[in-house]
Deep mutational scan, measured.
Amino acid sequence: MIINNLKLIREKKKISQSELAALLEVSRQTINGIEKNKYNASLQLALKIAYYLNTPLEDIFQWQ
């Protein structure tokens, strides 16, 4: 199981879903879906999320 901390980290950094989506060149709905565990981010997208949030990938998506 993967624990998804994207919403928590994004909100801590005061970045909206729309802002993050624009940086990543995806839709806001994609970010929303990832945060609600409706969609799994591809490895490429997960790495981009970590880069733009300046946060280690394993802090955003944790295996349990």
Rank of each mutant, 00 (worst) to 15 (best):
Lys48Thr: 04
Gln62Arg: 11
Val26Ile: 10
Ile2Lys: 08
Leu24Arg: 00
Lys36Glu: 15
Ala21Gly: 06
Gln17His: 03
Ala22His: 12
Glu11Cys: 10
Glu58Trp: 11
Thr55Arg: 03
Ile49Leu: 08
Ile60Leu: 12
Lys38Ile: 15
Lys14His: 13
Leu57Gln: 02
Arg28Tyr: 09
Asn54Arg: 09
Asn5Met: 06
Gln17Ser: 05
Asn4Thr: 03
Ser16Met: 05
Lys36Cys: 10
Val26Tyr: 03
Asn32Ser: 15
Gly33Ala: 15
Lys13Gly: 05
Asn4Met: 04
Gln29Lys: 14
Pro56Thr: 05
Ile9Tyr: 09
Ile49Arg: 00
Ile9Gly: 02
Leu24Gly: 01
Asn40Val: 15
Glu25Cys: 15
Asn37Ala: 07
Leu47Trp: 07
Gln62Gly: 12
Leu47Asn: 09
Lys13Ser: 09
Ile2Ala: 08
Ile34Pro: 01
Trp63Glu: 05
Leu24Gln: 00
Ala41Asp: 01
Asp59Cys: 11
Glu25Phe: 08
Lys13Ala: 13
Leu45Ser: 01
Val26Met: 04
Ser42Cys: 05
Ile31Glu: 01
Leu23Ile: 11
Glu11Lys: 10
Gln44Met: 10
Lys36Asn: 15
Ile34Trp: 04
Tyr52Gln: 07
Thr30Asp: 04
Lys38Thr: 12
Ser18Met: 12
Ala22Asp: 12
Ser18Thr: 12
Ile34Asn: 00
Leu43Met: 12
Leu24Pro: 00
Asn37Tyr: 07
Tyr39Asn: 07
Gln29Thr: 12
Asp59Glu: 14
Lys13Trp: 06
Tyr51Asp: 09
Glu25Leu: 10
Asn40Asp: 10
Gln29Asp: 15
Lys7Ile: 06
Glu19Arg: 13
Lys13His: 11
Leu20Gly: 00
Ala22Met: 12
Asn54Cys: 10
Ile60Thr: 03
Leu47Met: 14
Ile15Arg: 02
Ala50Gly: 04
Trp63Val: 07
Ser18Tyr: 10
Phe61Pro: 01
Ile31Cys: 04
Glu25Ala: 11
Ala22Arg: 14
Thr55Ile: 07
Lys12Ser: 15
Ala41Met: 14
Ala50Met: 04
Met1Gly: 08
Tyr51Phe: 13
Lys13Tyr: 07
Tyr51Arg: 08
Leu43His: 10
Asn37Phe: 07
Ile2Arg: 09
Leu23Arg: 09
Asn54Gly: 12
Lys13Thr: 06
Glu58Ser: 12
Ile60Tyr: 01
Ala50Val: 05
Thr30Cys: 15
Gln17Met: 09
Gln62Cys: 10
Ile49Lys: 00
Lys38Phe: 13
Pro56Ile: 04
Tyr39Ser: 08
Ser16Gln: 05
Ile60Asn: 01
Gly33His: 12
Gly33Ser: 14
Asn4Gln: 03
Thr55Phe: 04
Thr55Val: 12
Tyr52Trp: 11
Leu6Met: 08
Met1His: 10
Asn5Cys: 13
Asn4Phe: 06
Ala41Glu: 01
Ala21Lys: 02
Ile9Asn: 02
Asn54Ser: 11
Asp59Trp: 07
Asn40Thr: 15
Phe61Ala: 02
Thr55Met: 07
Leu6Asp: 03
Ala46Gly: 10
Gln17Asn: 02
Leu8Trp: 07
Gly33Glu: 14
Leu24Ile: 10
Lys14Gly: 15
Glu25Trp: 05
Leu57Glu: 01
Leu8His: 14
Lys36Leu: 13
Leu23His: 12
Thr55Asp: 02
Lys12Gly: 12
Lys12His: 09
Lys36Gly: 10
Gln17Glu: 04
Ile2Met: 11
Glu35Met: 03
Tyr52Val: 15
Ala22Cys: 12
Ile15Ala: 01
Ile31Trp: 00
Glu58Phe: 10
Ala41Arg: 01
Leu53Cys: 02
Thr30Asn: 04
Ala21Trp: 03
Asn40Ile: 15
Lys12Glu: 13
Ile2Asn: 06
Gln29Met: 09
Gln62Asn: 08
Ala21Glu: 02
Leu24Val: 15
Ile34Lys: 01
Met1Ile: 12
Tyr51Ser: 08
Gln64Glu: 14
Gln64Val: 13
Leu45Asp: 03
Thr55Ser: 08
Ser42Leu: 03
Phe61Ile: 03
Ala46Tyr: 13
Lys14Ala: 10
Leu57Asp: 01
Tyr39Val: 15
Leu6Lys: 01
Ile49Val: 05
Leu53Thr: 03
Ile9Thr: 05
Leu24His: 00
Glu25Pro: 05
Gln17Asp: 04
Gly33Leu: 15
Ala41Ser: 06
Leu43Val: 10
Val26Glu: 03
Arg28Val: 15
Glu19Ser: 11
Ile15Val: 10
Leu57Ala: 05
Ala50Glu: 03
Glu19Ile: 07
Asn40Phe: 12
Thr55Glu: 11
Asn32Pro: 01
Ala21Leu: 02
Leu23Lys: 12
Met1Asn: 09
Pro56Glu: 07
Lys13Cys: 12
Ile31Pro: 00
Ser18Gly: 13
Gln64Met: 09
Ile3Met: 13
Ile2Trp: 13
Gln44Lys: 14
Leu6Gly: 02
Leu24Ser: 04
Phe61Cys: 04
Ser42Asn: 09
Arg28Asn: 07
Thr30Pro: 00
Thr30His: 11
Lys14Trp: 04
Ile15Met: 14
Lys12Asp: 09
Gln29His: 14
Val26Trp: 03
Leu43Phe: 14
Leu53Met: 06
Ser42Arg: 05
Gln44Trp: 11
Ser16Pro: 05
Lys48Gln: 09
Leu43Asp: 04
Gln44Ser: 14
Gln17Lys: 06
Leu47His: 10
Ala50Asp: 01
Val26Arg: 02
Leu43Pro: 10
Leu53His: 02
Tyr52Lys: 05
Leu24Glu: 00
Leu23Phe: 14
Lys38Asp: 09
Asn37Trp: 08
Arg10Tyr: 05
Glu35Arg: 02
Gln64Phe: 07
Arg10Gln: 03
Asn32Lys: 14
Ile2Gly: 06
Lys36Arg: 12
Glu58Tyr: 13
Leu23Ser: 09
Ala46Ser: 07
Lys12Met: 15
Val26Lys: 01
Tyr39Ile: 15
Ser18Lys: 13
Leu57Phe: 07
Lys14Asn: 14
Glu58Asp: 12
Lys36Gln: 15
Glu35Val: 02
Glu25Asn: 15
Ala22Thr: 12
Leu43Thr: 08
Lys48Met: 09
Glu58Gly: 13
Ile34Cys: 03
Leu45Lys: 00
Leu53Pro: 01
Glu11Arg: 09
Lys12Pro: 01
Ala50Leu: 03
Thr55Asn: 02
Ser42Asp: 10
Ile49Trp: 01
Gln44Pro: 11
Ala46Asn: 03
Ile34Thr: 02
Glu11Val: 10
Ile31Ala: 02
Lys36Met: 14
Ala46Val: 06
Glu11Phe: 06
Ser27Thr: 11
Glu58Ile: 09
Asn32His: 11
Gln62Met: 11
Ile15Leu: 12
Thr30Lys: 09
Ser42Ile: 04
Ile3Thr: 13
Lys48Val: 04
Ser16Lys: 09
Leu20Cys: 05
Asp59Thr: 08
Gln64Asn: 12
Ala46Thr: 04
Glu19Tyr: 09
Ile9Pro: 01
Tyr51His: 11
Gln29Pro: 06
Lys7Gln: 13
Thr30Leu: 15
Gln29Val: 10
Gln17Ile: 13
Tyr51Cys: 10
Glu19Asp: 11
Ala50Ser: 11
Ala22Glu: 11
Leu57Val: 13
Lys14Phe: 08
Ser18His: 10
Ala22Gly: 11
Tyr39His: 12
Ile15Trp: 05
Ser27Ala: 06
Glu35Ser: 02
Glu35Leu: 04
Asn32Tyr: 09
Asn5Phe: 08
Tyr39Arg: 13
Leu6Arg: 01
Asn32Leu: 09
Ile3Ser: 10
Ala50Trp: 03
Leu53Lys: 00
Ile34Glu: 01
Leu53Asp: 00
Arg10Cys: 13
Ala21Val: 04
Leu8Ser: 15
Ile34Arg: 00
Tyr39Leu: 15
Trp63Ile: 08
Ser42Tyr: 04
Ala46Cys: 12
Gln17Gly: 03
Ala22Trp: 06
Gln62Leu: 08
Met1Gln: 10
Tyr51Asn: 08
Gln64Cys: 10
Ala50Ile: 03
Ile34Met: 04
Ile2Phe: 12
Leu20His: 00
Leu20Gln: 00
Leu8Val: 15
Ser16Leu: 05
Phe61Asp: 00
Asn40Arg: 15
Ser42Ala: 04
Gly33Phe: 13
Ala50His: 02
Lys48His: 05
Ile9Leu: 09
Asn54Ile: 04
Trp63Asp: 05
Ile9Phe: 08
Gln62Tyr: 09
Asn5Gly: 04
Ile60Lys: 01
Ser27Pro: 14
Ser42Glu: 07
Asn4Cys: 09
Ser27Lys: 08
Lys48Pro: 00
Leu20Val: 02
Arg10Met: 07
Gln29Asn: 13
Ile34Val: 05
Met1Ala: 10
Leu45Arg: 00
Gln64His: 13
Asn5Val: 05
Trp63Asn: 06
Tyr39Gly: 07
Ile60Gln: 01
Tyr52Arg: 04
Gln17Cys: 03
Lys12Arg: 14
Tyr51Trp: 11
Lys7Gly: 07
Leu43Tyr: 14
Glu19Thr: 11
Thr30Val: 15
Ile9Glu: 04
Ile49Gln: 00
Gln44Leu: 10
Lys36Val: 09
Ile3His: 08
Leu43Lys: 11
Asn37Gln: 08
Thr30Gly: 02
Gln64Ile: 09
Leu43Arg: 11
Lys12Cys: 11
Ile9Arg: 01
Gln64Trp: 07
